[in-house]
Computed example of a mutant assay.
Amino acid sequence: MLADTAAPSRIRTGIGILNSRLHSIGLKIFAVIVLAHWAEHLTQAVQIYVMGWPVPEARGVLGIPFPWLVTSEWMHYGYALLMLVGFILLRPGFTGKSRTWWNVTLGIQVWHHFEHLLLLIQALSGAYLAGRAVPTSLIQLVAPRVELHLFYNALVTIPMVIAMVLHARADRADNAAARCACAVER
């Protein structure tokens, strides 16, 4: 009999465990990462629009002591990649309408990741889009970078929050198929 030596079921794999008994904690950690990133962008916006700082000086919270964080395309790309991986790894835990909203977020993050990959390639090659003096994303051709990143973060965060709220509601019939206890832990 091969029952004991067969490949482990999906529920016993790392992704299966993450999307069953560890889904709630995984989502909480992911939410903290997203909120911390939002705090950086919102602080930068306050520095520019409320405090009147010039854009190069408005570096958020961590960018003040570590200015290279703001100018590092590697750091920005790494965060975009981390987000993409997080959305992919946590996706199997969602069902029904919450999964639909999570998929919307994932799709938006795929584009956001592509934009950061484009920026990184330009930074590494020294060849900038449309003859600009600095790495430039496609949408940045029509919108300033600070405002564009606030917009992208809103586009990613809003459907993510909708997905998480729907996923956490125990009264939703489409949550019955979920393998995690997110909807009953409240």
Rank of each mutant, 00 (worst) to 15 (best):
R132G: 00
L90Q: 08
L84Q: 13
I162A: 05
I162Q: 10
G126L: 04
G126Q: 05
L148P: 01
I139A: 10
A133S: 14
V146W: 04
H167I: 03
V134N: 00
Y152L: 07
A143E: 06
L117N: 10
L148G: 04
V165L: 11
L120K: 10
L150N: 10
I121D: 12
R132E: 00
S125F: 12
F94Q: 04
L124P: 04
L129M: 15
L166W: 03
V110L: 15
M160T: 07
S125P: 06
V104G: 10
L118F: 14
F114G: 14
G86Q: 07
L155H: 08
H167T: 05
V142A: 12
Y128V: 08
R169Q: 11
G107Y: 14
L119H: 13
A130W: 01
P135D: 07
L119V: 13
A163N: 06
S137K: 06
V134I: 13
F87P: 06
A168G: 13
L82C: 13
P135Q: 07
E115N: 13
K97A: 14
A154S: 04
F87L: 09
H116A: 11
Q122G: 13
F87S: 09
S137I: 09
E115V: 07
L89C: 14
L150P: 05
V156K: 06
L90P: 03
L117S: 15
N153L: 07
V110K: 08
W102D: 03
F114V: 13
A163E: 05
V161N: 02
G93T: 13
R145T: 03
L124M: 12
R91E: 06
A143M: 12
L138R: 00
N153M: 11
P92V: 12
M160Q: 03
P92Q: 06
V156S: 09
T136D: 00
L141D: 06
G131L: 14
L124H: 08
S98P: 10
E147C: 05
L120P: 05
I139M: 12
M160I: 02
I88G: 03
L89W: 15
L141P: 01
T100H: 04
F151K: 01
L141H: 05
M83I: 09
G93Q: 07
I158C: 01
I158P: 00
R169H: 06
H167C: 11
G93N: 10
L118Q: 14
W102A: 11
S137M: 12
R145V: 01
W102R: 06
P159L: 03
L119I: 15
F87V: 03
L129K: 00
L82K: 02
F94M: 09
T157A: 15
V161Q: 03
L90F: 09
W102C: 04
G86T: 08
G96Q: 06
S98F: 09
V146F: 03
V165W: 08
H112F: 12
V161Y: 01
W101Q: 02
K97F: 09
P92W: 11
A163L: 08
T105C: 07
M160N: 02
